[in-house]
Amino acid sequence: MKNKNDSTAVPDTGHVWDDNLRELTNQPPRWWMVTLYLSGLFILGYFILYPAIPLATGYTKGVLDWTQMKRFNESVKQIEAVRAPFENKLKGMSALAILDDQELSTYTVRSVKVLFGDRCAPCHGVGGAGNPGYPILADDDWLYGGSIDAIQDSITDGREGMMPAFGPILSEQELNDLTQHVIALSQGTEHAVGKTLFEDQGCSGCHGEDGKGEQMVGGANLTDGIWRFSPGTEDSIKYTIVHGVNEPDAAESRQAIMPGFEKQLSEAEIKKLAVYVHKLGGGQ
């Protein structure tokens, strides 16, 4: 077979090693050079069309005037166009009506999930699982009511619990008796001395005579074993009785403030969030 690449005729640089290793001055293959020039043209075109060269102040904008921000906004417009038909339907509807509509409530749950993650999940946990000091949203124990309207009100105006601190008022023994009664309530029984205190000290005013709570004032249900301030241990219950909730003068008082979102979110967003929360598992 003939050697196709006979190199004897090719000029060299004059550098020869080991008698016969010559450095040839072959041109690169033409396809290679063409590719190189085409790449150069591509870069040139790119520099003309797109933002490319950083300057002392700013940069060359390119004739297409392309920016990432514009592209992002276009994408946002696209997703908004997909959502528009649903959103238009939602506008005129009450949260209750949305809840009753299978398709729209599914849309609502999916589309508002991100907003829930941004605004609600930091305290109430992803999926409404709750956090120490922050109520679980996935259960059916509601301080202010679990109807869709009540939930919507809670998000719109916020909630601020209030319970006086009994530490300065009652003796140590009385505090213990009251604590025992609260524990007994959660187990379906009662503590005779504690029960008297419960009624005399006005606890039943908010928590109800039977201890089942009063949603009008946000009084917690003490009988269901679900604790507003977890864990539901004796120490924790007594702490709440001693220091109260949101007592303005007591630094150790329990904090229970949920901000109102009326100014931060649109009415439609709040409506959707209410549907989302209602469907987490405990809506009534």
Partner: peptide, 8 residues
Amino acid sequence: QPLYVLRS
């Protein structure tokens, strides 16, 4: 999240 919920 949550794995389970206790109901009243």
